[in-house]
């Protein structure tokens, strides 16, 4: 059941999107997010949908895998939709009703915005290995070092966190199985009972996470890790022609988004 969690998962592949430089992909996703928030009219949203579908087709990620990641968000999405639906003033769809035409319009746009936001970022993590992703981030944030921002420390923490998500999921799965074998029941009962039922999972999980962290720190130190100072990397990132082409496309997309916003469509 936990295997369905797709956060930070990477689907290896050899498409043009997979081969793009991680920096290019991060920048493109940032542009995509900004464009998404610039959108006001349906044409603006249509542009973002187009970008997502294009990325999806080029990366050969199936819509099923992409939308599977939305499952945990269903509650938030429905809540957003409901609030917008019922609390937007305007013309009621029927005389005397709370629901207005404006409310429907807004609710649909908000849902679309969340879905596009999440699936767009998933497209990045699905096609970029965690290693490449943090390498790209570190290089992009390098200028921040000037203001003493601990860029290397941040990115290595992030890459370790990403690296251990699958491990922890596996571990959680194992603990859940072990407790279920002892008759633990996580599916029935009220809220308090269910929260209490989590204890036999959380305690062993936290204990083992701490032990793992100690072991990892020892293993890193014994291999002479001492921070990012003077550290070189095995895979040098280099922007290729396809990256510049992709960035140019991104710039065009951004211009279109700004124009659409100015015309309010």
């Amino acid at each position: 059941m936990l295997k369905d969690i797709t956060l930070g998962q990477f689907f290896p592949g050899d498409t043009i999107v997979h081969r793009l430089d991680p920096r290019t992909k991060i920048l493109l996703v940032l542009l995509y997010i900004v464009a998404l928030f610039l959108a006001v009219g349906w044409l603006g949203y249509g542009l973002s949908v187009l970008a997502l579908v294009g990325g999806m087709a080029l990366s050969k990620i199936t819509p099923r895998n992409l939308f599977k990641g939305l499952k945990p968000l269903i509650f938030i999405i429905s809540l957003t939709a409901a609030i917008n639906l019922f609390y937007t003033g305007g013309t009621p769809i029927l005389p005397g009703w709370i629901v207005t035409w404006e409310g429907i319009d807004r609710a649909l746009k908000m849902v679309l915005r969340i879905v596009l936001l999440v699936t767009g970022t998933f497209l990045l993590t699905y096609t970029t290995s965690p290693m490449a992703l943090t390498d790209g981030l570190e290089l992009l944030m390098k200028p921040l070092k000037k203001v003493r921002f601990p860029v290397h420390e941040m990115t290595i923490m992030m890459s370790m966190a990403l690296r251990f998500i699958p491990t922890l999921i596996e571990e959680t799965d194992r603990i859940i199985s072990a407790q279920r074998a002892r008759g633990a029941d996580f599916e029935t009962g009220g809220l308090i009972r269910r929260a209490k039922a989590l204890l036999p999972i959380l305690v062993p999980l936290i204990v083992s996470a701490f032990n793992r962290a100690y072991d990892l720190a020892t293993a890193m130190e014994s291999r002479c890790y001492h921070g990012g100072e003077g550290r070189t990397r095995m895979k040098q990132l280099k922007l290729k022609r396809v990256d510049f082409a992709a960035l140019a496309l991104g710039a065009a997309y951004m211009t279109a988004a700004v124009l659409l916003r100015n015309y309010g469509i």
Binding site: R174, A178, R180, G183, L199, I201, V203
Partner: peptide, 21 residues
């Protein structure tokens, strides 16, 4: 599915990881 768990007891590998109380 629940009742069978009393009949068939399963001890996982490294079961000490399940201790919590």
């Amino acid at each position: 599915r629940r009742d069978i768990k009393w009949k068939v007891g399963l001890v996982f590998q490294y079961p000490e990881y399940q201790l919590f109380a």
